[in-house]
Simulated scan of single mutants.
Amino acid sequence: MSNLTFFKFDDLGPSRDRAPLPERLMEGNPQFRSWEVERSSDDKVLTGIWETTPGTFRSIKGGTWEFCYILSGVSEVTEDGKPPVRIQAGDSFVMKPDFTGVWRCIETTRKIWVVYE
């Protein structure tokens, strides 16, 4: 068994496809695709790729900590009570536990994510 996991962005295998929960949908018809790449043996740390098509939805992290690195596209993330932040390829940020806000995808956006639950 190897202690390295390699993956290629153009060969991620089958995705898990879904949409925002109806109560979180705010505008449009965003569709999500995600690919889990790896998880720790205790299932507390996971990493993968996520993509959304244009639209606006509520983002609620609950107890999850998430690091994000934007690979492509343009979106805007607005934490409740804060001004919007435009994100695009090359940007990175952390969504801490209990984050609540709005994710507005302007151009299909793809990110690498690492979560700790």
Score class of each variant (00 low, 15 high):
residue 62 G to A: 09
residue 89 A to P: 06
residue 23 E to C: 07
residue 53 T to W: 11
residue 92 S to R: 05
residue 68 C to T: 04
residue 26 M to F: 00
residue 51 E to K: 15
residue 90 G to I: 04
residue 74 V to N: 08
residue 44 K to P: 04
residue 21 L to N: 12
residue 66 E to N: 05
residue 18 R to C: 11
residue 69 Y to K: 04
residue 78 T to E: 08
residue 46 L to M: 12
residue 90 G to L: 06
residue 40 S to K: 02
residue 24 R to D: 15
residue 92 S to I: 00
residue 54 P to R: 05
residue 22 P to C: 04
residue 20 P to R: 01
residue 19 A to S: 13
residue 23 E to S: 10
residue 83 P to G: 05
residue 89 A to K: 01
residue 93 F to V: 00
residue 54 P to H: 08
residue 41 S to V: 06
residue 43 D to N: 14
residue 32 F to H: 07
residue 26 M to K: 13
residue 39 R to M: 11
residue 27 E to K: 12
residue 41 S to P: 02
residue 89 A to S: 10
residue 74 V to Q: 12
residue 88 Q to I: 03
residue 58 R to F: 10
residue 17 D to Y: 01
residue 41 S to G: 10
residue 77 V to I: 15
residue 77 V to Q: 09
residue 52 T to D: 14
residue 59 S to A: 08
residue 93 F to A: 00
residue 31 Q to S: 14
residue 82 K to A: 15
residue 32 F to C: 06
residue 84 P to Q: 07
residue 19 A to E: 11
residue 22 P to K: 05
residue 46 L to A: 15
residue 66 E to H: 04
residue 34 S to Q: 15
residue 18 R to H: 11
residue 52 T to K: 09
residue 31 Q to N: 12
residue 61 K to R: 15
residue 62 G to H: 09
residue 32 F to A: 09
residue 82 K to F: 13
residue 74 V to G: 01
residue 69 Y to A: 02
residue 36 E to K: 13
residue 36 E to F: 07
residue 60 I to A: 13
residue 86 R to L: 13
residue 90 G to A: 06
residue 68 C to G: 03
residue 90 G to Y: 02
residue 81 G to T: 07
residue 60 I to Y: 05
residue 90 G to K: 00
residue 65 W to K: 09
residue 40 S to D: 05
residue 51 E to P: 07
residue 76 E to R: 06
residue 35 W to E: 09
residue 66 E to C: 14
residue 44 K to T: 13
residue 68 C to E: 03
residue 49 I to G: 06
residue 17 D to H: 08
residue 51 E to G: 03
residue 57 F to R: 14
residue 91 D to T: 01
residue 41 S to Y: 00
residue 86 R to C: 11
residue 45 V to E: 11
residue 67 F to M: 08
residue 29 N to G: 08
residue 57 F to H: 14
residue 46 L to H: 14
residue 63 G to A: 15
residue 86 R to S: 13
residue 69 Y to G: 02
residue 69 Y to D: 02
residue 86 R to G: 07
residue 25 L to S: 10
residue 73 G to F: 07
residue 32 F to M: 10
residue 60 I to K: 10
residue 52 T to A: 14
residue 59 S to D: 15
residue 72 S to W: 02
residue 53 T to C: 06
residue 34 S to H: 10
residue 28 G to N: 10
residue 67 F to S: 06
residue 33 R to T: 14
residue 85 V to H: 12
residue 62 G to M: 04
residue 42 D to I: 05
residue 56 T to F: 05
residue 20 P to T: 03
residue 54 P to Y: 09
residue 61 K to T: 12
residue 26 M to I: 13
residue 86 R to Y: 02
residue 79 E to M: 08
residue 90 G to R: 00
residue 29 N to Y: 09
residue 51 E to R: 15
residue 82 K to D: 13
residue 38 E to T: 12
residue 63 G to Q: 14
residue 90 G to T: 02
residue 68 C to Y: 01
residue 40 S to G: 08
residue 46 L to I: 10
residue 40 S to F: 01
residue 78 T to H: 03
residue 78 T to Q: 12
residue 69 Y to E: 07
residue 42 D to C: 02
residue 49 I to T: 06
residue 81 G to E: 01
residue 49 I to A: 05
residue 32 F to P: 00
residue 47 T to K: 04
residue 91 D to W: 00
residue 51 E to W: 10
residue 40 S to H: 02
residue 85 V to L: 06
residue 27 E to T: 04
residue 23 E to T: 09
residue 27 E to Q: 12
residue 35 W to R: 03
residue 43 D to P: 03
residue 93 F to R: 03
